[in-house]
Amino acid sequence: MKRRKRSKKVRLNRSLGGDIGVFLFLTLVGIFMIIPFVFAISNSLKPLHELFIFPPPLFPRDPTLDNYTDLFQLAGNLWVPFSRYLFNSIFVAVVVTVANVIVCSSAGFVLAKGNFPGKKTLNQIIVTSLLFTSTVTAVMQYMVMAKMGMINTYWALILPYIATPMNLFLMRQFMGQLPDSMIEAAKMDGASTFRTCWQVAIPNVKPAVMTLLIFAFQAAWNITGTQFVYQEQLKTLPTVISQITAAGIARTGVGAAAAVVMMTPPLILFIITQSNVLETMAHSGIKD
C-alpha cells in the first residue's frame, strides 16, 4: 500500500508539459462535445419570441422557466394523470435495471470462468446475436409476446429488456480478466458457483459493474414499449413526452425543456457511479 501511494505522487513516465498538452487537447474536444448541450439548455430557457430571432443568440437575453412550467402544465392536463406515467417509468426502470444487472452478471461470470460442455457454443451465440438488427424481428417479437398473452401488461415492458447480450458480453469480457487462481481459491474454500460470483468475482470488477449499471439504466429509462403496450395507463415517460412535443413549432422550447428533464436521472446516476469507480479503484487493480 505504502509503495503504491508513493508511486502516485511521483507519477511514473509523465512529464508536466505532456500533461498540460493532454489537458488542452481534451478541453478542445470537450467543447465540441458540449456545444449542442449548451444550445439545448439555453433554448429551454428562452421565451418563445427569442427562439426565432436573427441572429440566434447563444444565451437567452431574458431567461425564463416558462418552458418548464408549460411542460408540467401540459403534462398535468393529460387524460391519464402524469404521475401514472412517472410511476410506470420509475417502476419499469428500477425493476429492469436490477434484474438486468443480476441476470447478466451471473451469466457473464459462468460464461467467462465456467468450464462446462456447451460453453463455447453459447459464447458464440451471444456474440453473434449482438449483430442482429431489430427492425425486422419486431414483428415476430410481437407475435411471440401475443402468444404468451403479454401484450398490454407490465410484463411486456419488463421481460424483453432483461437479457441483453451486450451487457452479458461486457461482464464476460471483464470477468475473463480475473486470475483463475482467484476463482480456484474460492472453490477450494468450498464456495458454490453462485457465491464465487457474487462474493469474489463481482467485487473485483467494480468498474465493469458500474458501467453495466449505467448501460442498464439508460436503456431501461428509455423503454417506450410502444409496440407492445396500447393502453394509455401503461405507457412510460418517453412516450408521453414525445406526444407533448410532437404538437409542432410552438413547442420548440418545451421540447428542449423535455429533453433536459429526461436527461437528468441517467445523468445523476452516471455522476454517482463514475465518481464511485474512480474513487475506489484509485489505488487498486486486479492482481494475479
Binding site: 451469466a107 459462468v110 451465440i125 424481428t137 411471440v144 437479457a163 447480450p165
Partner: peptide, 16 residues
C-alpha cells in the same frame, strides 16, 4: 446461473 438469462434470451431475442 445461466438459466434466467438464457430463457429470457431464447424467448425474446433468439426465437423472434
Amino acid at each position: 446461473m445461466m438459466a434466467p438469462f438464457m430463457i429470457l434470451f431464447l424467448i425474446f431475442t433468439l426465437l423472434p
